[in-house]
Design a binder for these strands. Structure first.
Lengths: 209, 209, 209, 209
DNA sequence: GATGAATGAGAGTTCATTCAT
DNA sequence: GATGAATGAACTCTCATTCAT
């Protein structure tokens, strides 16, 4: 679990305060970005919703792009936390996978619009910030790769080594598509149906013969 | 094949000319949106790259959003055409599916950045335009649903009716993820490998026992 | 007479219009810079005094610094024109010098505040613009150097070659100090007195024995 | 030697401390103003370079303009001290003048950028502060006027009474131009050459017949 | 006496859109 | 049908100054 974050300089020295204020900023910005998009949200709106003045906002960030990075990073962390919490070392790989997918899709469903937000605005990040965000994305994918490898080892799952990475991506995309194609999927399926059907299809790919 | 498009008013009467000019606009705008994004592209740039003045641009559209719709619609049409061209009525459902996925992924690989563009900027469309774009998206999905149903009928594919729609979405997403996760996938797989592996996994889900 | 100017890009294509609008800008900006200084004058004020909107202002310049360059260049041109007009080829070097100083000081007295402006704001120019402005300054100095050399040649003035350049600078500074030390000098002397006394002192330095 | 200074109120009562802190402020501000100019230097920078917080800075001044006044006044004092130190009562007026010019130009050359600073930023002072600064300027000029008068009295210099003041200004300007026209003068002359040539020219104006 | 977080007016600049020619 | 100069609301960001601690 590599712990790497882009550090954003602040004019304010007290780290506790910086963290607190940035949490306020993130909370405000997430809502605004979700409802209006990054480009149509103004820095003044972010400041107002955060509960302080525009001048104060800029004591804690250097540019509007910083807010986007803060937001993307916070969402990713929330996602990662949600997924990791479901891991139970006592289960077989196959069981662990089912459980992890179940929880993952639940998290994605709850975080719905936040996930969509990352998905749509990552491109607006500065190249440097984008690197960090994509790295985080890969770390999250790796969680599923690890589970798959465990299942292969204990014989509960069948998959070629070369496909592990791809399958991990497929699982991640399962969750993402539930958010970005919800306009179509939710007309036909509930989250539970979606989860069950996708899990069932997936396990057919991984069945030991 | 429902043919429905949002009609965009033009000050110019001659329909031939309108079409010609809008093609110029689309060609210019696609490149600009790909390299700078919709919001960071100015109408002046669109006009200049289109080969005429800003005044003339506004003779053929009513707002910058119109250009985005024109672009999204054109990309979708190109995609659809690419996919439909691969359909060969003499094949079994299973064969047709393999062939269609092969061609679909090839098209998506070629249109790469254009697909990404639709994905990232659809949210900037006006609600009305977005409706049309999502409708088109569903029509494209329906192409695969039709192939799947054909395979079920002729016995070459096995799938519950309820899963047909979901499976069609899954196939579409297979193509999309090749573009929006390319930063990760292309480190590990070529298009050919990706196609083969995904097709093989998919067919395990659809195998007749 | 080298003719070199920094060219400032304009979004407007018609050169006649560009020249006309820039004259308006210069006229407005000179007054504003004189009364409030460059830094305390806002671009909005410049636009308003020029008679058009802020948007229009930026069709003719790229930045506020451009206005400063335009202003400095215009003032220098006016100065140079005023000085060159006094040159009469039929006079001896000494006579020509007297005449040129007389006219030069008259011009400087009339342009008073504009000269002061150049003096105080040249430092705010971009390095590139500053180069052009200082070059112009040297060209103007060279006018006097030429007159001095003529006087040396025809025997009406006595000065070592090495001192010609220095003396030319001294003459230029005579005019400048009349503007930037006016708060002291005008308490004691009229322009006529100042001119006469300085000319008389100067000629003592240049007298042929 | 009139001793008059604008008094700047301080929130701090202890005069020793006020003086010490203001020295720190001046030292920091001089460097900053020289390298960035008054307007482009922020109060935060001044505080940081002075070694204390922005809050503390405002305990010792009332506004940013106060810092400029403090700086101008300090530079003037340094200049004045440098000039006065060269006065040797045992010399004749003419000798004293030569010596004073020599020392004066040496001081101006050393203080170079500080002199330029006063010269360029005096205009940004409040009207009241400007009055004090110009008064100081006149006092310094008067030093040379006194020397000239002494030379007239002892017969070592020849000059009409009415020209004394003007000549004193001319001498001051000799030093100033060495700083503000250095971009041209230093291409041709060293300080020693400049001093010698200007002194020699000047003495021709003042020679007793 | 020292601190530094908070403020918000105001700066320079951009750009979608209009409309007279 | 084509042009492009004009517009001004709106944007991001800065910074001198204050005041509670």
């Amino acid at each position: 679990m590599t712990e790497m974050r882009k550090s954003i300089p602040s004019l304010v020295k007290d780290p506790k305060l910086v963290e607190k204020r940035r949490e306020q900023i993130i909370e405000a910005a997430v809502q605004l970005f979700i409802s209006k998009g990054f480009h149509k949200t103004t820095t003044r709106e972010i400041a107002r919703e955060s509960g302080f003045s525009i001048g104060t906002l800029y004591e804690y960030i250097e540019s509007k792009e910083d807010v986007l990075y803060l937001v993307c990073d916070a969402i990713h962390s929330e996602m990662e936390k949600g997924i990791r919490s479901s891991i139970d070392a006592s289960l077989s790989g196959a069981e662990m996978l089912k459980r992890a997918i179940l929880d993952y899709l639940k998290v994605m469903d709850q975080m719905d619009e936040k996930v969509l937000l990352i998905y749509q605005e990552t491109k607006s990040l500065t190249p440097e910030a984008k690197k960090y965000v994509l790295q985080k994305e890969e770390e999250i994918t790796e969680i599923f790769a690890d589970i798959l490898r465990r299942g292969i080892e204990d014989g509960s799952l069948s998959l070629e080594e070369k496909s592990v990475n791809l399958m991990a991506h497929n699982i991640i995309v399962l969750g993402e598509m539930w958010t970005f194609r919800r306009w179509a999927l939710r007309k036909h399926y509930t989250l539970e149906e979606y989860t069950e059907m996708q899990t069932s299809l997936l396990l057919r790919e991984l069945q030991t013969t």
